[in-house]
Computed example of a mutant assay.
Amino acid sequence: MMRIGRAATPSGGGQALVEMGARFTPALRAFFSRRAPMNDVEDLVQEVLLRIHKRQPEAVVNNVEGYLFEVAANVLIDRGRADRTRCRSAHCEFQEIHHPVDEMSPERVLQAREQMARALAALNELPERTRRVFVLVRFEEMSYKLVAQRLGVSVSAVEKHVMKALRHLNARLRDQNDADHAGQRDTRRPG
């Protein structure tokens, strides 16, 4: 049983309790390793020691071991509440595999510039009105209704111009990708 009182005893001082807590650290680690994820064990042990250090220095603890493990159980309960509140189980650790670094190699930069040049060339192949509608909708982020008002056409006409532009761009970029892949296969073949 744990008893906290006001009378001073040799093991009742705050510093003595902290030293006892440090002595029981391996037992606390074992306690937490059976009840919590391994990567939380050290944090939980530190939380127990911190709570013991913060307690009232004049209070007396007759059963230090029992008190330590009661504090440890309370730390686990508090951690569980906090985890549920913060939905901790839904979080993932920041690891390279989950969040790969996007390398901007010179080759990727060159490929992106080439793709942009192809897209602009395909866009310039469109009739003036179709190109203008597409730029206003996709790049200027104007609504179909606003573009229709600005150009004096119906919303249906704006929709048709956007679809025409998308089909043309898709076809041109797909043709170019097919040509690129065919060229890569030809350069890999043994001569």
Rank of each mutant, 00 (worst) to 15 (best):
Val45Lys: 00
Val64Leu: 11
Val101Pro: 05
Glu93Pro: 12
Leu68Arg: 00
Cys87Phe: 06
Pro57Trp: 05
Glu70Thr: 15
Val101Ile: 14
Val75Thr: 05
His98Pro: 07
Ala90Phe: 09
Glu65Phe: 02
Leu76Gly: 11
Arg51Ala: 06
Val71Met: 14
Tyr67Asn: 01
Lys54Met: 06
Val101Glu: 10
Phe94Thr: 08
Gln46Thr: 02
Leu68Cys: 00
Asp102Gly: 07
Cys87Arg: 10
Asp83Asn: 15
Lys54Trp: 02
Val48His: 01
Leu68Asn: 00
Met104Asp: 03
Arg84Asn: 14
Arg88Thr: 06
Glu58Trp: 09
Glu70Val: 15
Pro100Tyr: 02
Val64Gln: 11
Cys92Gln: 14
Arg81Thr: 10
Arg88Asn: 09
Arg55Glu: 10
Ala82Arg: 14
Glu70Gln: 14
Val45Trp: 00
Glu93Met: 14
Asn63Leu: 11
Ala73Phe: 08
Ile77Leu: 12
Gln56Asn: 09
Gln95Asp: 04
Leu50Ile: 08
Val61Trp: 08
Met104Tyr: 04
Arg86Ile: 04
Ile77Cys: 06
Val75Ile: 01
Glu65Gly: 00
Gly66Lys: 05
His91Thr: 15
Gly80His: 06
Gln56Arg: 12
His99Phe: 03
Gln46Arg: 04
Val45Leu: 03
Ile97Met: 15
Gly80Glu: 08
Val75Tyr: 00
Glu47Trp: 02
Arg79Lys: 10
Arg86Pro: 02
Phe94His: 13
Val48Pro: 03
His98Ile: 14
Gly66His: 09
Glu96Lys: 13
His91Asn: 09
Glu65Trp: 00
Leu44Asp: 09
Lys54Pro: 01
Leu76Asp: 10
Val45Ala: 02
Gln46Ile: 04
Phe94Trp: 15
Gln56Ala: 07
Gln56Leu: 11
Pro57Ile: 01
Ile77Phe: 09
Gly66Ala: 13
Leu44Gln: 02
Arg84Leu: 12
Glu96Thr: 07
Met104Ile: 02
Ala59Ser: 03
Pro57Lys: 03
Gly80Phe: 10
Val61Phe: 12
Val64Asn: 08
Gln95Arg: 10
Leu68Lys: 00
Glu96Ile: 13
Glu65Arg: 01
Leu50Cys: 14
Gln56Pro: 08
Asp83Tyr: 15
Leu44Thr: 00
His53Gly: 15
His99Arg: 12
Arg81Ala: 04
Cys87Trp: 04
Arg81Tyr: 06
Pro100Gln: 00
Leu49His: 05
His91Val: 13
Arg55Ala: 04
Val60Gln: 15
Asp78Leu: 01
Arg79Gln: 12
Arg55Ile: 02
Asp83Thr: 13
His99Ala: 04
Val71Gly: 08
Asn63Gln: 05
Val60Met: 12
Val101Asp: 14
Arg79Tyr: 11
Leu76Met: 02
Val45Phe: 00
Gly66Val: 13
Gly80Trp: 05
Ile77Gln: 12
Asp102Pro: 05
Pro100Trp: 01
His99Cys: 03
Glu96Ser: 07
Leu68Glu: 00
Val75Met: 04
Ala72Leu: 02
Asp83Ala: 13
Gln46Asn: 13
Arg84Trp: 04
Pro57Arg: 05
Gln46Tyr: 07
Phe69Tyr: 03
His91Cys: 08
Gly66Ile: 12
Glu58Leu: 13
Gln56Ser: 11
Lys54Leu: 08
His53Leu: 12
Ala82Pro: 05
Val64Asp: 10
His99Gly: 02
Tyr67Pro: 04
Phe94Gln: 14
Gly66Met: 12
